[in-house]
Design a binder for these strands. Structure first.
Length: 857
RNA sequence: GCGGGUGUGGUGGAAUUGGUAGACACACUAGACUUAGGAUCUAGCGGCGGUUACGCCAUGGGGGUUCAAGUCCCUCCACCCGCACCA
């Protein structure tokens, strides 16, 4: 079990040494304050908040192992939550567990434990680690999605969604993962392989539950405009995923058969159509296969070896069918092929091919000697005919030719004209299409929310009566890794139909775990026993003010959350809302240097030391080469273990380090020396308290701060406040450190009034980052927790530095009074100017008050 | 290929949005204190030249606008991320 794992011994010399030097006993301080927070629960939030503020980090899967990526993610959120709380907001900052999913079940298979036992043990361990990190959560709201008290409400939602016709059970070609023995959503496949198992995905037909996601494509696309505080990258990823395109349906008649419907985004090239092509799933292809062996063989072959554009050998292939399509405008008869490069689940699964203006059709036509008919003339020059001439529709250059009534038109006008014609003659229609497909939510797995439906031979799909909820997971289950455990359970699925009372069976599938993560943020706000949430309470805290998590959830999770909100509104759970998530922060991953020996063996960075000649070697002298900084992974041996870091340097140093140096959304380079620097900073703070204890704990000094220091202090408070507001935590830290340096200098210079005030501001600014040390030091000099305020009047000194330029080149600076006039500044700068220009006449002077004076000669 | 992003010292990264490039750190160098330093303190730290004063060059490359460009415009290059038979 992961929680029994041995603490890795810290062979890095930094890790070995730290305790011996310094009175900064972080362990004692951390234990003291964590115990205090445990008792006082400072992060619980009022039921009737006056200034609600919702900070949420994507909840973790309880794998049982905390890694530094988690640390960064949750510290980011915690810094923000503590900051907003100090500002007086009623901050909701909850934590829970995304506890259903395959790893628990896989662990059950390999370790012979029950998924529930495994999951709960992991949660236990991770909760301890989270508390150790000093993360300020309202633990009273904690839940795991595998709790029956959570998923029972999800089952009720499922039934209500079904009644609202938001769900459908249908057969479709699904992706079968032969290792995990389950189907996967399209989004869960990467390059043809399962996202978890890496197995090659097979196609299989099954009856599944789908969320009618495609019905909401338009709404999901349009509402992206409301996500103006989301990263641009996430918005475009969602846009691409939804994949809008505008085109037309065109009907080609086929003798003695239903007409062949094709979808085209370029109907204006219809006169350039020289053949039609259908996918291997198309009815015409299937019919042909029953009588023609070559067609059947081609279909079988293509299913086994689908067209993959990425591969170098990808070639467009096909077999001519015995049918012919009648061109709707020219009435010409065109051959029909079944081909490998047409998708069955996009458009109508059939196209008209215009080889002159489409690369794929062009390649196919060349290979099978089909006619190539140019219908668009390029803006300049002639088409060589060596490769397809692809002209975007918005290109004003292209002009239609060889296209009868369309000749001379631009593509855009031709598009309008040809669709009008098709509509008039009943041969087609304009159509908008989306790539977005329905979301398959059935999983052939045990460890998930049971789908609360009963399948009756007579009545069809019948929901489990609400009073019979929850549908619980049976405990006595066999995990042998084969098939669906629920389906194989001897009794569980057998029930009588709630409608006709005849024997029936439960749906033995469980829900995709993305279902749970679609509404957990609502349950955090409000968790009544008898229903999913109280809409009034929920609406108080929505939308989430800041949502923090990994960019890998840009499409799936974050799109499903938006979809789910639309469904909740449709089903009457909530009032409409623009977006459930106001601001999104996608944090970058943590990287670490990699090292390899000359045998290409990865070695751990902590075992490597730089030699005098600048090369790297192991302690025994074995030379190693330094590689790039890469995402931490076990195989590359560049992971660091948060437990040993906390042990050696303390939580506050770790917390501060993971948010310093790099902007949160960018990747972060781990370095032992960087961590060491944060620890040194903590230690210096502690030492400062020791050294100046009498002055720091004394009454407020009578003397005023120096002007320079006063301005710096207020500027720092203003800057850190703005930085935190915008989640530029690395800059906040830079500003805090600058103030600390000034405080140190003031102390050394004997300016006790600067020290006294600056120290207090410092502790408050530092509190979100190093909460334990800050609390300890604040207690020692009686400083209450609150966010420091600044006075705008103090943000500018009464003297400013003005840059002096000659012909736009910097020649020096002068100190002048704030808002000094041009003449006074020139007066002050005359030496610098004279030195540079000699006695050349001045042609022009550019003066920007408090900034710059530029003399042109 | 399409879309998004990034490019600044030895390194991570700043720069009031057109106005003193390199804040804050890390690394490094020298010195101090030390039995010791991997602790701590002090100083230095973009490059070239000069004893200094100072000068020249520098924000991926090239061009432009401007009194003034890391920032605006044009163009080229490199890297990263996402999507990619979507008709």
């Amino acid at each position: 079990m992961p929680q029994n794992k041995k603490r890795s011994c810290c062979s890095s010399f930094f890790l070995e040494k730290r305790c011996s030097v310094s009175g900064y006993d972080f362990k004692k301080i951390e234990d003291k304050w964590q115990k205090s927070w445990e008792e006082s629960q400072p992060f619980s939030v009022d039921k009737n908040p006056k200034n609600p503020f919702y900070v949420l980090e994507m909840f973790p899967y309880p794998s049982g192992v905390l890694h530094v990526g988690h640390v960064r993610n949750y510290v980011l959120g915690d810094v923000l939550a503590r900051f907003k709380k100090a500002q007086g907001f009623d901050v909701l900052h909850p934590m829970g567990w995304d506890a259903f999913g395959l790893p628990a079940e896989n662990a059950a298979i390999t370790h012979n434990t029950h998924p529930r036992t495994w999951t709960h043990a992991n949660i236990q361990h991770m909760r301890k680690q989270f508390k150790r990190l000093g993360l300020g959560y309202d633990w009273s709201r904690e839940f795991a999605t595998c709790d029956e008290s959570y998923f029972m409400h999800e089952q009720e939602m499922f039934i209500r969604f079904w009644k609202e016709n938001l769900l459908v059970r249908k057969e479709g070609v699904v992706n079968w993962d032969p290792i995990d023995q389950t189907i996967l959503a399209n989004e869960q496949i990467e390059n043809g392989r399962g996202w978890r198992s890496g197995a090659l995905i097979e196609k299989k037909k099954m009856r599944q539950w789908f969320v009618r996601q495609s019905d909401f494509a338009e709404e999901l696309l349009a509402s992206i405009k409301d996500l103006d505080e989301w990263p641009a990258a996430v918005r475009t990823m969602q846009e691409n995923w939804i994949g809008y395109s505008e085109g037309a349906i065109v009907r080609f008649s086929v003798k003695d058969r239903d007409s062949l419907e094709v979808f085209s985004t370029r109907p204006e090239t219809l006169y350039g159509a020289t053949f039609c092509a259908v996918s291997v799933e198309h009815p015409l292809a299937e019919e042909a296969a029953s009588t023609h062996k070559d067609v059947a063989d081609f279909i079988t072959h293509t299913r086994a070896h689908p067209f993959d554009e990425q591969s170098d050998q990808a070639t467009q292939e096909g077999v001519k069918l015995s049918f012919e399509a009648c061109h709707p405008l020219t009435k010409e008869l065109l051959p029909i092929y079944v081909v490998n490069y047409v998708l069955s689940d996009y458009g109508t699964g059939a196209i008209f091919a215009c080889p002159a203006h489409d690369e794929r059709d062009f390649a196919f036509a060349k290979r099978y000697n089909e006619r190539i008919q140019q219908v668009i003339a390029p803006a300049q020059g002639e088409w060589s005919g060596e490769e397809a001439l692809v002209v975007p529709r918005d290109d004003i250059g292209g002009t239609l030719i060889h296209s009868k009534e369309l000749n001379g038109l631009s593509c855009a006008s031709a598009f309008e004209r040809v669709t009008e014609t098709l509509i008039k003659q009943g041969l087609g229609a304009k159509q908008e299409r989306y790539r977005l497909r329905d979301w398959c939510v059935s999983r052939q797995r045990y460890w998930g929310t049971p789908i609360p439906m009963i399948l009756c031979d007579d009545c069809g799909e019948v929901p489990v009566p609400v009073e019979d909820l929850p549908v619980s997971l049976p405990q006595d289950i066999v995990f042998d890794g084969q098939g669906n455990p629920l389906d194989k359970h001897p009794t569980w699925k057998h029930v009588s139909c709630p409608q006709c009372a005849k024997p029936a069976v439960r749906d033995t599938d469980t829900l995709d775990t993305f279902f749970e993560s679609c509404w957990y943020y609502l349950r955090f706000i409000s968790q009544p026993k008898d229903r999913c949430f109280d809409p009034k309470e929920v609406e108080q805290f929505l939308p989430i003010d800041w949502y923090i998590g990994g960019v890998e959830h840009a499409v799936m999770h974050l799109l499903y959350v938006r979809l789910f909100m639309i469904m909740l509104v449709r089903a009457g759970y909530l009032k409409p809302i623009k977006t459930p998530i106001k601001r999104l922060l996608t944090q970058g991953m943590i990287c670490h240097r990699t090292y390899r020996t000359k045998d290409k063996e990865w070695v751990e960075p902590k075992d490597v030391k730089k030699q005098a000649d600048g090369t790297w070697a192991l302690k025994d002298g074995t030379p190693v080469t330094e590689g790039a900084s890469e995402k931490m992974s076990k195989s590359k041996k560049n992971v660091v273990d948060p437990d040993s870091i906390m042990e050696a340097y303390g939580v506050d140093a770790l917390r501060m380090f993971v948010v310093s140096d790099a902007p949160p959304e960018r990747h972060f380079d781990w370095s032992d020396t960087g961590l060491h620097g944060s620890w040194r900073f903590a230690k210096k703070l502690y030492a400062m308290m020791d050294e100046w204890r009498d002055d720091l704990t004394a009454e407020q000094p009578k003397q005023e701060m120096t002007q320079e220091f006063l301005v710096l202090m207020h500027k720092t408070i203003a800057a850190v406040t703005d930085d935190l507001e915008a989640m530029r935590l690395h800059l906040a830290i830079a500003h805090i450190r600058a103030l600390f340096n000034a405080v140190t200098q003031s102390a050394a210079a004997g300016c006790m009034q600067n020290l006294w005030h600056g120290w207090r501001a410092l502790l408050l600014l530092l509190d979100p980052f190093m909460p334990h040390l800050s609390a300890e030091l604040r207690e020692q000099c009686s400083v209450e927790s609150s966010w420091p305020s600044y006075n705008k009047n103090y943000l500018v000194a009464d003297m400013v530095t003005v840059a002096v330029q000659v012909n736009g080149k910097m020649r020096g600076t002068v100190e002048v009074a704030l808002n000094a006039a041009e003449q006074d500044v020139l007066q002050e700068a005359q030496n610098i100017i004279a030195r540079t220009i000699g006695n050349q006449p001045v042609r022009k002077v550019i003066f920007v008050m408090n900034r710059i004076v530029n003399v042109i000669v």
